[in-house]
């Protein structure tokens, strides 16, 4: 399979209490001060004034992450999103290898966010969306969905072992990036997934 230029993971948050996005801004600035993540961090973008937007985003050279203020046209609550801009990496890694690296980096940021006690964020790695914003190579078509879904099953089997993984999509719309919705059976946390060594 061709290498996608960009991948995004979005995790649901545990619990009903909304995260105050005003509080996220100083946390991200602090991460830049302290070099909290292993990737190169640049700046913080604030879009909390826009409904169902990326919310507050920590901009990096190869990776961005943030807490949004919900998904559009759904009852979904806030989510933690992580973007890896592979076009900036110029590596030869396969799609599957890119998924693995995306997962590792996203969990690093998720763990750091959970450790910010003032935010009260708890991320659910068992409820996620994978987006492939690469309309040239991965238009949101049924064929591409099938191909990417098979790859995602293979990848998540490495992460969650024998736990049942359900992969679906929110409805084909070729104007949107290819999007898969993933639910993993059982209770999962960032700590438990990391403890499992995956």
């Amino acid at each position: 399979m061709e290498q996608p230029q960009r991948l995004i993971l979005r995790f649901e948050l545990h619990g009903d209490a909304p995260v105050n996005l005003d509080d996220v801004i100083p946390v991200f600035h602090g991460w830049i001060q302290n070099g909290r993540l292993s990737t190169m961090l640049i700046d913080v973008a604030d879009y909390k004034h826009v409904e169902a937007s990326p919310g507050v985003v920590l901009i990096g050279h190869t990776d961005d992450c943030g807490i949004d203020n919900g998904l559009p046209r759904t009852e979904s609550g806030q989510g933690f999103h992580y973007t890896r801009k592979h076009a900036r990496l110029a590596d030869e890694a396969s799609f599957l290898e890119r998924l693995r690296q995306l997962w590792t980096n996203a969990l690093e940021a998720a763990e750091a966010l959970e450790q910010e006690a003032g935010l009260g964020v708890s991320i659910n790695p068992g409820r996620l969306q994978l987006m492939v914003p690469d309309r040239l190579r991965y238009a949101f078509t049924e064929a591409n969905v099938q191909a990417v879904a098979a790859l995602v099953q293979e990848w998540l089997a490495e992460v969650f072992g024998s736990a049942a993984v359900t992969v679906s999509h929110p409805g084909i719309d070729e104007r949107l990036p290819l999007t898969l919705t993933v639910a993993v059976a059982g209770e999962h946390s960032v700590a438990s997934v990391q403890a499992s060594g995956n």
């Binding site: 937007s53 990326p54 901009i59 914003p133």
Partner: peptide
């Protein structure tokens, strides 16, 4: 919209001269 999520940070911005701007774009894109 497609350009905003493939090359920028998912936001389109309208300027005071009826333009659009995308931010955090890499020159090679």
């Amino acid at each position: 919209a497609a350009l905003a999520d493939e090359y920028s940070d998912g936001i389109l911005h309208i300027t005071t001269r009826q333009d659009f701007q995308l931010h955090f774009v890499h020159v090679e894109d």
